[in-house]
Amino acid sequence: MAVNPDAINRYARHLVLKEIGGPGQQALLQSRVVIVGAGGLGGPAGLYLAAAGVGHITIIDDDKVDASNLQRQVQFISSDIGMDKATIMADTLDDLNPDVTTRGIVQRLNADNAHALLQGADIVIDGVDDFKARFITNDACLRLGLPLVSGALGRFKGQVSVFNTDADAPCYRCLVPDIPPDSETCAAVGVVGALAGVIGSVMALEVIKLITGAGDSLAGRLWLYDGLAAESRTITLPKDAACPACSNNSG
């Protein structure tokens, strides 16, 4: 990293960590992350990644800010209501760290545009609340060879995992092969706002670890958090030989 007093001051707490240091911080500044979904998970993840100095952050979301979002989507304020989430969040991350180049794409990720929108990224974050969109994101990441950091939450529980890190690692559909018939959104079941911050922050941490090579990622593992019990556990998530997306027999 260039000897820049402003940068040294901004990233001082990273620079003293032997797991990150100067080389890790340089890797962060040169990395490209795409966040799919500027909501309860993508918001806190994006805030922490921008603060960490991730050099290029793209946010993809076609939704607008609604008053009901403000209970958990801390990247927005009341005056943002009615504005495009991707645009507002990109502006917020710009204000947070001038070292970060942001891009807000006001589109819904779909099977037709996913390859083009994700191409060029180093890591993709899945912060959506829709299984179809998750499957599309996962499939595009598989084709592009991109690691996928995925989180989910509902009521008082959440989970995080890392997919597609190598040929032997599981993908998202090793965990969820098909769309559950009883799938429910946060709008239907509710969610405590602070939980989004917990899960989104863990997602950001996993991205930072992947970029810098620090520690052990959640690749091949699923981290489960129970906010009511204040307990968490990590379980093994093996690659599924019959996975419809990443097995040798898949299309």
Rank of each mutant, 00 (worst) to 15 (best):
V3K: 07
N4R: 03
H14W: 04
E19W: 05
G21W: 10
G22K: 05
Q26S: 11
L29F: 09
V36T: 04
A38R: 06
G40K: 01
G42Q: 05
G43I: 00
P44V: 03
A45S: 14
A45R: 00
I59W: 02
I60E: 00
D61S: 08
K64V: 10
V65S: 01
V65Y: 01
D66P: 00
L70C: 08
L70R: 03
Q75D: 01
F76N: 08
S78E: 14
I88R: 13
A90H: 04
P98T: 12
I105Y: 05
R108M: 14
N113W: 05
I125W: 01
G127Y: 03
F131R: 00
F135V: 13
D139W: 08
L146H: 10
S150E: 03
F156G: 02
V162K: 07
F163C: 07
T165K: 05
A169W: 13
C171Q: 06
P181T: 13
A188T: 13
A188S: 15
I199A: 13
G200S: 09
A204Y: 05
V207A: 03
L210R: 02
A214Y: 02
A214H: 02
G215F: 06
G220H: 07
R221Y: 03
L222C: 10
L228H: 12
E231R: 15
L237S: 08
L237I: 14
P238G: 10
A241W: 01
P244Q: 06
A245G: 09
N249A: 11
G251W: 08
